[in-house]
Nucleic acid binder design. Structure first.
Lengths: 135, 135
DNA sequence: CCGGATCCCTGTAGATACTG
DNA sequence: CAGTATCTACAGGGATCCGG
């Protein structure tokens, strides 16, 4: 469940055959969970982009958070980072095959989310409006 | 981008037609991102389960975290909570149609994750082992 | 005993701002 | 374009207490 390599190889003493692979899958799910990664991957699905282009496309993201996000995605092997030694500096990002593969899977979840967010919102309001004594 | 209803209806002043729906989709993606929700949904995919059954199946989860997770999923309309006024207390959880629908989409991502975690781990080690001077 | 609530503590994601 | 420092909010966890 943890992020460290050491904890990840925990032997599942309870002979739970499902939990263990799930724990490892969390490494990927955590990427999906963080605020900007999915969106950056989606944008790079349209092709190679510069740092400044991404910054402009998202526009509400902090410069710092874009850097952090890109570093993480590069580390996980989802994107390539190419630096052109020119002035002013030019850095381009693009999806790796692994990243493109993830994007394919992600699109399904993304469209599901967009299609059902309204229903989730309804459920939340219904839940929040209910008498606390009901529970 | 935020969790509050107020912030969610931010008017996209930059005429960015993609970012806005993505922000709303985050409400769903955040569920995927949190540590136990996906696993609980998966377990409930096999059918109705009691609190104690879920606790036993996951076994490394805290009683508190299971409660918190179930509350969140119930609030979002993904699961049903049924209390039987008996002794000892009996509470059963099951997927709603919405939850079952999400699970279908989730399975694809889950299998992708499990299939590619090794490649991600490789990428990470390669990245971490590289000379910091390379960047 | 079961299911949960409540208090408290910690790590860390994310933001702001400043630097080169 | 990026690195660094600092701050805050909150997710996650431990322990303990509570009502049926």
């Amino acid at each position: 469940m943890s992020r460290t390599a050491k904890d990840r190889q925990v032997t599942d003493s309870q002979t739970n055959t499902v939990l263990s692979p799930y724990c490892r899958a969390r490494d990927v799910l955590d990427r999906v969970g963080d605020k900007w990664s999915v969106y950056v991957i989606t944008l790079l699905g349209d092709g190679t982009k510069r740092f400044s282009e991404l910054k402009r496309d998202i526009h509400v993201i902090t410069q710092r958070m874009l850097t952090v996000t890109l570093r993480g995605l590069e580390r996980d092997g989802f994107i390539n980072r190419t630096v052109y030694p020119v002035y002013p500096a030019r850095v381009e990002y693009s999806l790796t095959p692994l990243g493109a593969s993830l994007l394919d899977t992600l699109r399904a979840l993304l469209t599901w989310s967009i299609d059902h967010v309204d229903r989730v919102d309804e459920a939340r309001q219904h839940y929040d409006d209910a008498e606390p004594t009901d529970r």
